[in-house]
Amino acid sequence: MTPAPAMLRPPARILPDPHAPGLTREVEGFDETGAPRATRVIEERPLTLWLNGREIVTVMTIGDHPECLAVGYLANQGMLRPDDVITAVEHDDDLEVVVVRTARETDYEDKLARRTRTSGCAVGTVFGDMMEGLDGLVLPELEVRTSDLYALSKAINQMPSLYLEAGAIHGTVLCRGAEPLVYMEDVGRHNAVDKIAGWLRLRGEDASDKLIYTTGRLTSEMVIKCALIGAPALASRSGFTAWGVEIARQVGLTLVGRLRGRRFLCLSGEARLLRDADPAGVADEPRRSGRKGGRGAEA
C-alpha cells in the first residue's frame, strides 16, 4: 500500500480529545425531579464525501478527522484500490465537504445504484458487491494474548473520551499488543472504523500485526470492514450477530466479544488465543451503564 504524500498523513498516534472545540455543547434540561440540569451532548453534522468529480454519499458524523473518514469509507467500499495514488484530500468545513482526488479517473455510477441499508446506526451503508472484496481473502494469523485483551479492555474503558464526556457515541481503537495506537469515536460505529481504515491508508501502515477493539456490536459490516482493513483480530464489549460470526470464520478472523472484566467469549479463532492470564486474577467488572459510569452493553 502506497502512503499518501507526507503533507496528507495524519499523526502517528491519535487518542480522544473530549474537550476539543465543536464536538460537544452544553444543553439545559430538567431531571426526574423537575430540577434544572445542564448536560453536554454530542454535536452531529452532515459531511458529504466526493471522489474526484462525483458526489458519493453524505454521512452524519461528529466532524473530527474528516480526511480519515473519507479515505477509509471509500477504501472500504472498494472505490479506492490498493494501488490508487491519492493526490489530494480537500476538506471545506463551511461547505461540509471532503473531496478525495486520485491519479486514476474514477466512475462508480453502477456501484452507487446498488447501495443497501444495513443494521448499522448513523446512516451506515454497504454496497451490494462489498462482499466481493472477501473472495479468497484469508487473514494473516496473529497470536492474541488474553493478558493483552484484559489490559486493553481496562485501559480503553478508563481513557478520557467523548463517550465518558457526553455519551451517545461509539469508539473503535487500533491496537498493537496491549497498546492503543489510534482511538476514533463517532456517532456510528461504522464511521469510527472507517476513520481507522483511512488512517492506515494515509499512513501506509500495515494492519496484519494489529487488533481492532470496538465498543459496538460485532455485526457483519464491522467484521467485513475489519477484514478488508487486513486486521486479523476484532474484540468488543458487546455481542455478536450470526452473520458476523460466519464471515469471521470464513476469513480466519479472531472474534472476541462480551469482553468485560475477566469474562469474554471467543466465537472464531480460538486456536490463535494464547491464554497467558489466569481469569481468577483479573478483577471482575460491576454491572454499570450510562454516561460517567461505564459503557453500556451496546455502547
Rank of each mutant, 00 (worst) to 15 (best):
L181R: 05
G244E: 03
T58E: 07
G244C: 04
A227C: 11
D17S: 11
R288P: 06
H65L: 15
D129L: 05
E205D: 13
K210V: 00
R201G: 10
R13G: 06
G133L: 05
S236D: 01
C68D: 13
G29P: 03
E32I: 14
G63W: 12
T241G: 11
C121G: 11
E221M: 14
V99P: 07
A113Y: 06
D129N: 05
S119Q: 10
V126H: 14
R249F: 04
V144L: 01
L267W: 05
Y213V: 09
G72M: 06
P21K: 07
G22K: 09
P18W: 02
K195N: 09
A197K: 07
A280S: 09
E270S: 14
P3R: 07
I247L: 09
E143D: 15
Y213C: 14
P36C: 08
L267I: 06
R145L: 02
T125C: 07
D206T: 11
E143A: 08
G136H: 04
R81K: 12
E28K: 14
L51M: 08
A233H: 00
F240W: 05
L139M: 03
A113R: 13
F30L: 08
V57A: 09
V99Y: 05
I14K: 02
D93V: 13
R287M: 15
L23C: 01
P18H: 04
W243F: 12
Y150R: 00
P180V: 00
M131I: 08
G78D: 04
V41G: 02
T106E: 13
E165M: 08
S220E: 15
L265F: 10
V97M: 14
A88T: 04
R117L: 08
A155G: 01
R237I: 14
R275S: 12
D31M: 05
A12Y: 13
E55V: 07
A38Q: 13
P5A: 12
Q250M: 15
E109N: 06
L8C: 06
G133F: 02
V182A: 09
A271P: 08
P11A: 08
G34H: 04
R201A: 09
A168T: 10
T87I: 06
I156K: 00
R249N: 13
G216L: 04
G216C: 04
R295L: 07
L228Y: 05
G120D: 14
E270N: 10
C68P: 03
V138G: 11
E32R: 11
P279Q: 05
T58R: 14
A70Y: 10
V223N: 04
L112M: 05
R260Q: 06
P286H: 01
T146S: 02
V251L: 06
L162E: 03
L74A: 07
I212C: 03
A233P: 02
T87K: 07
H65T: 15
D107V: 01
E32K: 11
L112R: 04
V193Y: 11
R237F: 08
T172R: 09
P46H: 06
C266P: 03
V85M: 15
